[in-house]
Design a protein around this nucleic acid. Structure first.
Length: 910
RNA sequence: GGACGGCUAGCUCAGUUGGUUAGAGCGACUGGUUUACACCCAGUAGGUCACAGGUUCGAGUCCUGUGCCGUCCACCA
């Protein structure tokens, strides 16, 4: 074995072997309980980020643990076509080649995009293999696959038939960069510091008299169709019904009154531009006002804006309109003003409210979606996200699902040629289209990407095709067991998947009929949802490409190994809290693997032949001879039992960083630093050698099993190297519970002594104190140091049993009992008693006095606090007896310590 | 304007239902290469648990308020 663990060769070799053996294949096996996860499909053209590493490590961990526990496991991978994102990329690349999508035409563009996707896409899936992800790659799904596409269209048609989908002319969020409508969720509000302009409008019937209006968007004045005041605004009792002159594109427009106007904002007077503001549009509807659309789709102004403005970009138009108003004397004031502006999430440009005809979805099963989470059919980890989820559902708005793009699922609606598209009588809605296609033309738009990915858990398992569902094992794997994703897509994806599952799984149920509990239980797409945190850099900033603060996971794998990366990331990932990334933690993950490697190496060096045999749990236990079991053996076995239970509990609670901490403590502190260190002599020779090695084997074997979900490669490798494999991969062996281990030990007449743990802790504290006495005086290399101790008979007896191992681990010549504090020796007071270092020379009495005085002060503070507590009648009467007893014991211990320190102090030479 | 999360050692974080003297890793400092591991071992220093009240015999932990940091939701021109 190499001196240091070399992950590269091991990882590639093992991954290949696992794939070849079909370890990851998800098969419906009626003899096993099912465990399934569907991957949150990354963008097909995406590359692996630290976020993916976190997310997918957790999923892999869950899948691998389930495999160990004997479940029929499926982790289903795939990619998302990512409509806008991909189309934008392809267009950019075309532009770089000097081509445009219009030249290619729809068919040509899609063909081109597909080629581009096939060439550059799917990289991320290869990268996930490097991470060790145990996905069933044979079942990889892409959202534009024929089967999946059919599911998307089928869902649309069913929703249409059930009255959930409708077409309407409405205000939508328009992205002038991507030239498409967006859903409300794709708009992010950003605070902007802009200007608030005060503009005057002249009253027609009273020339020279003006009304003042505050606006942030002077470039839309040409589209004003009215001014509005609040009906109860007593400042202007008689304005209603009169008219003003619009200062740009002059025209006479009426003054109206509407409750939606805020009397207290600006001048209390609102200009109404129905085509370019949501509120204005609503007011316009109420008052039957006309709509003047000033903008082209790309955000430039059109003819309605007048010749001066036509063709200008909206922001140029803004400055130009300000200039013009100023020159006309209509601009009275200009002040700084901070407000929130909606930006397109993808293109990062301000969105434009725009009136257009689009397809909308009224969400199905909203009430049941709430119940599913409220009543615990679906559990959120951490639970607090359920509040965010429920709040969104309470205020849910219809979903604009049509996108003016080419890359995606084309809406399965056909319009009769030459007839009005607004009239449903001219529509044909079906998956396969009309039988006389020559008389129809298909809707040009595609569906929002999320209107395909919301079917992910059900459509990847074959829905809606009966045969496919059977083949893919939908009945077996659905509902999936866990979903691992970020809280940022709780609305985009999680909530919508729940509604889709409730609506589409099983028989179609009338919209008016509420689902029963049993139906909800069967239809939900997943049972547990684990929300990860967001990975931030060391300064707490979000990782992003533009900041360049995101390390490349593949570089990290190269440097620290996939296991190191996985271990590192899992050790810093508290449940649902944001994560500060630091490469040091990944380094620690690598170090951990190396430690595991080296202790295994040491184990082999102790007895190469013993390792060669295929050792099962039973055969390891049978190598233990209870005659040769020492207290240290009992103690480490008890710690192993504890750790098995603790780690298992923490795994089940999704507390992965705590899980690793628990395993770490056992493995590093208890096993390596204490047990192995103290057993080196036994491991080499003598009667107890076999027993001792068997204990080490048992501990190592269980540690490997516990760690396998987190660090699959090194554990599999050592599993074989150490001879625990019985020819089988570690993947299929369950670490088992502490209770099961105890039972196995018991069947071989091994019953760990419960008092051994406590003894070990006491001895460890003693050893630490003795080491400290030496270390503080730089005596680390001196093995002949003599110690004395002052302690009770009982403690003295205990020490006699451990003396040699204590001397050995401290590196000391002797440790003898005295009846009173020896003069002039540095001392430490432990739970065990006082220990003294015999050091005639090189002692600085003053330094020693300082140290002891400090200790004494500290003790005095503790003692007086306990005393006052015990003097308090309320405490002694109300606190539970054991707490009071504990305090008393604590007091007497500390008083004893104090006496001993005082003695030691008195014994110091002046 | 609402809602949620965070504030504990220089840094990153643990701290289960209130109960003996608040922990770990990293970093700092001291010492160590007797054949598992310097990706290691031994040890030391370092904390008014953000602040202010309250409940309680007892508060890092529960309640109220304040501050700062972060996230989400919200049509104020």
């Amino acid at each position: 074995m190499e001196k240091a663990y070399q992950p590269k060769e091991v990882e590639d070799r093992l991954y290949e072997a696992w794939e070849k053996e079909g370890s990851f294949r998800g098969k419906a096996d009626p003899d096993k309980p099912a465990y399934s996860i569907v991957i949150p499909p990354p963008n097909v053209t995406g590359v692996l980020t630290m976020g993916h590493v976190l997310n997918n490590t957790i999923q892999d961990l869950l899948a691998r643990r389930a495999r160990q526990k004997g479940f029929g496991v499926l982790w289903l991978p795939g990619t998302d076509h990512a409509g806008i994102a991909t189309q934008t990329k392809v267009e950019q690349q075309l532009r770089a080649e000097g081509k445009s999508k219009l030249e290619l035409g729809r068919e040509g563009f899609i063909e081109h995009a597909k080629q581009w996707r096939d060439k550059h896409g799917g990289i991320i899936l290869k990268q996930l293999r490097k991470l060790g992800c145990s996905c069933d790659w044979e079942r990889t799904v892409h959202t534009l696959d024929p089967g999946y596409s059919r599911a998307v269209l089928e869902a649309f048609v069913r929703l249409f038939e059930n009255g959930y989908v409708y077409r309407g002319k409405r205000m939508v969020n328009w992205c002038p960069a991507s030239l498409t409508a967006l859903s409300d969720e794709e708009v992010v509000m950003k605070p902007q510091s802009g200007k608030l302009y005060k503009v005057r409008y002249e009253l027609i019937d009273s020339p020279g008299e003006y009304l003042l209006v505050s606006t942030t968007r002077p470039e839309t004045i040409m589209g004003d169709v009215a001014l509005a005041i609040h009906p109860q605004d007593e400042r202007w009792p008689s304005l209603q019904g009169r008219k003003v002159r619009r200062p740009l594109q002059p025209a006479e427009i009426p003054i109206i009154a509407d409750r939606a106007v805020d009397k207290n904002f600006g001048t209390g007077m609102l200009k109404i531009t129905p085509a370019h503001d949501r509120l204005d549009f609503e007011i316009g509807q109420r008052h039957e006002l006309p709509v003047i659309d000033l903008f082209n789709p790309d955000g430039t102004l059109n003819e309605s804006a007048g010749p001066e403005f036509c063709g200008l970009d909206r922001f140029d138009a803004r400055s130009k309109s300000v200039e013009k108003l100023r020159s006309q004397g209509d601009l009275l004031e200009e002040e700084n003003h901070d407000n929130n502006v909606g930006f397109s999430e993808r293109a990062d440009v301000p969105i434009e409210p725009r009136l257009s005809e689009q397809w909308f979805l009224r969400y199905p099963r909203v009430e049941e979606a709430k119940r599913a989470v409220e009543d615990g059919f679906i559990r959120y980890f951490p639970d607090r996200w359920s509040k965010t989820y429920l709040h969104w559902l309470d205020n849910i708005q219809d979903w604009c699902i049509s996108r003016q793009l080419w890359w995606g699922h084309r809406i399965p609606v056909w319009y009769r040629k030459g007839r009005s598209r607004s009239d449903p009588r001219n529509w044909h809605v079906s998956v396969d289209g009309p039988s006389d296609p020559e008389n129809w033309e298909q809707d040009e738009d595609v569906l929002d990407t999320w209107a395909s990915s919301w079917l992910w858990p059900i459509a990847t398992l074959g829905w809606p095709d009966d045969l496919m569902m059977k083949e893919q094992g939908l009945d077996y794997f659905y509902p999936t067991s866990a979903l691992v994703t970020g809280p940022d897509i709780i609305f985009f994806w999680v909530a919508r998947m729940i509604m889709a599952g409730l609506e589409f799984r099983g028989d179609s149920i009338d919209a008016k009929t509420t689902l029963t509990d049993e139906q909800i239980r069967r239809r939900i797409p997943f049972r547990d949802v684990y929300f990860t945190g967001i990975i931030r850099d060391a300064k707490g900033r979000k990782m992003s490409k533009s900041l360049g603060n995101s390390p490349d996971p593949l570089d990290l794998i190269d440097k620290y190994g996939a296991d190191g990366l996985r271990h590192g990331i899992m050790s810093i990932a508290p449940k649902g809290q944001d994560i500060r990334f630091s490469e040091e933690r990944i380094e620690q993950g690598r170090n951990f693997c190396n430690k595991l490697w080296n202790v295994s190496r040491f184990r082999r060096m102790a007895d190469e032949e013993g390792v060669a045999s295929e050792s099962t749990l039973e055969s390891i236990i049978q190598r233990m001879d209870s005659k040769h079991l020492k207290q240290d053996d009992h103690a480490i076995l008890l710690r192993l039992v504890q750790t098995l239970d603790e780690a298992s509990r923490l795994y089940d609670e999704y507390e992965f960083n705590a899980t690793l901490q628990s395993i770490y403590r056992f493995f590093w502190n208890d096993l390596c630093d204490w047990y192995v260190e103290n057993s080196k002599a036994r491991m080499r020779e003598g009667e107890g050698k076999d027993t001792c090695l068997a204990v080490v084997d048992l501990c190592l074997r269980q540690v490997l099993l516990l760690l396998h979900p987190v660090t699959p490669f090194i554990t599999e490798e050592l599993w074989k190297v150490l001879g625990y494999s019985e020819g089988r991969s570690i993947q299929w062996t369950n670490p088992g519970s502490g209770k099961e281990l105890l039972a196995a030990l018991e069947s071989w007449e091994i019953r760990p002594d419960p008092s051994a743990l406590e003894e070990m802790l006491a001895i460890r504290e003693l050893v630490t104190s003795l080491r400290a006495l030496k270390a503080e005086r730089n005596l680390a290399t001196n093995n002949k140091v003599e110690f004395f101790y002052l302690a009770s008979d009982e403690k003295s007896k205990l020490l006699d049993r451990y003396r040699s191992s204590v001397l050995n681990s401290v590196g000391a010549g002797s440790l003898n009992r005295v009846q009173e504090a020896p003069a002039g020796m540095p001392a430490l007071v432990t739970a065990f008693g006082s220990v003294y270092l015999d050091l005639a020379s090189a002692l600085d009495p003053n330094a020693e006095r300082d140290r002891l005085s400090k200790e004494l002060d500290h003790l005095d503070r503790i003692i007086s606090s306990i005393e006052s507590k015990l003097r308090n009648v309320a405490f002694t009467q109300k606190a539970p007896a054991q707490v009071v007893e504990g305090a008393k014991r604590q007091l007497s211990n500390n008083l004893a310590k104090k006496r001993e320190i005082e003695e030691a102090l008195a014994a110091l030479p002046r």
